[in-house]
Computed example of a mutant assay.
Amino acid sequence: MTKLIMSALLCLALTGVKAQQLAAPLQKNIQSPQVEKNGAVTFRFQAPNAQKVLLIMDDAKPRLMTKDTGGVWSYSENFAPDVYRYTFSVDGTVLPDPNNPCIKPLFKRALGQSLAHVPGPASLSWELNDVPHGVLSQHFFKSKLIGDNRDMRVYTPPGYDPKRKEPYPVLYLFHGLTDETSAWVTAGRENIIMDNLIAQGKAKPMIIINTLGYGAPEMFDPATGQRSKEAYQKNEKLFVDALINEVIPMVEGLYNVGKTKKYRAVAGLSMGGGQSLDVGFNHADLFDYMGSFSPAVVLLDPDFNKAFPNLNESVNKQLKLAWIAIGKDDYLAPYDRKFIDWLKSKNINHQYKETEGVHSYQVWRRYLTEFVPLLFK
């Protein structure tokens, strides 16, 4: 019970987002999600006039909910300890859980994805433990290259010392398409993972930067947004330009971090995984380490020779680590396997693994846990 209460308090602290009052007037006794000690989870949604309500989760398998006489739809299933994204499809309209304050926001969208935490043993890297904790900060700035006001999230490790003689290393960690800068905290639990790894002596104390992954944010404007190949390529180019010319200089001005490549790493998931490949391989003069989790290489140029025009064996002497991983059942796996074959054809050093799982934070939290201890050796 203590873990369940702690989980609920943690969700409130991490998101700061109130549940949307989307359904009919809520019954006072509705609890959703209801998580039991044995991993049984019951999801509930009040919609007395709805004809069909589905529970949608990361595996994309619609789960049909059933309605009781009070108009409350419910679904129960046992889940392994983890954190799960979910929404409800109510007669075709996708909504988060109005009874759950734990939400992962979406970029330029009023609604987000709800999060259900099934607590597990303290050995799981994303479980909150009694260890020293780092600090989460948020900075706002005007991007002159992109032309908008945006934010940047920062994790500083426990005991961060702005006057320490040895500067801190930095991991620039990118989110996925439709996410925004808080995603690696709300759903990825990066700060908890880092606190635990540092306390266990498995990772060096480092700073993590979560910057907004959109060089062309107009792609998401209602009615006028465009998702063409050209739009994605513009998005990618301006994102990389802003990272190199605005974000990195700003970080190095605000924090006690190293200003050479041996102090820098880059990683990301999905769209951010593709961005980390772009930044890591095309700018190996700026970074020593690169990690790519379920990379959306499809958002780069489909001709890899154009996406990485200067990539050759010389990068093997510049990049200390190129680490790539994806779930076997991820819908992006076929594209990533082609990319891996292309890297092999060019004799580019890399580590590649496929694990169980789909396109979800269940794999990405584990990848972060495995990748971070490899950095800054």
Rank of each mutant, 00 (worst) to 15 (best):
V53W: 10
P33D: 05
I56M: 14
N38T: 08
L374I: 09
Q138V: 14
R337P: 11
K37N: 10
K204Y: 01
C11Q: 04
K104C: 13
F281H: 09
Y331I: 15
D285M: 06
D148M: 05
V90D: 09
H359L: 10
Y361W: 15
Q27I: 00
C102N: 14
S137G: 02
L22P: 02
T69H: 07
L238N: 09
M152R: 11
L238C: 07
K328P: 00
H175M: 04
A19S: 15
A50V: 00
V247H: 03
G159P: 04
N100E: 03
L343M: 15
G16M: 01
T93N: 11
G357I: 05
S143P: 14
T156N: 02
T69F: 04
G134L: 03
W73P: 09
V131P: 07
I324H: 08
T69I: 13
A122P: 01
M6S: 13
Q46S: 15
Q226Y: 10
G274A: 05
P295L: 11
T93Y: 07
V185D: 14
L197T: 00
Y75G: 10
G258P: 06
V94H: 08
E218C: 00
A325Q: 02
V135K: 14
Q34K: 11
E127S: 09
V185F: 13
A116H: 03
Y352N: 07
E356S: 14
V53H: 10
P48F: 12
I207G: 05
M152H: 06
K28G: 05
N191F: 03
A223I: 15
F174T: 12
F339M: 09
N310W: 11
S270R: 01
T181F: 08
S228Q: 06
W364D: 06
I30Y: 00
T93R: 11
G215F: 08
S292H: 08
F308M: 10
L128V: 06
D161S: 08
D303Y: 04
L197A: 12
Y335S: 11
T66Y: 06
R365E: 12
T2K: 13
P48S: 02
K37M: 00
G201A: 09
F287Y: 10
M250V: 07
P205V: 10
A216Y: 04
G70P: 08
Y361K: 04
Y352D: 04
A284I: 13
V251I: 13
A322P: 02
G16Q: 10
G70T: 14
D97P: 03
P105C: 13
K108C: 08
H359N: 11
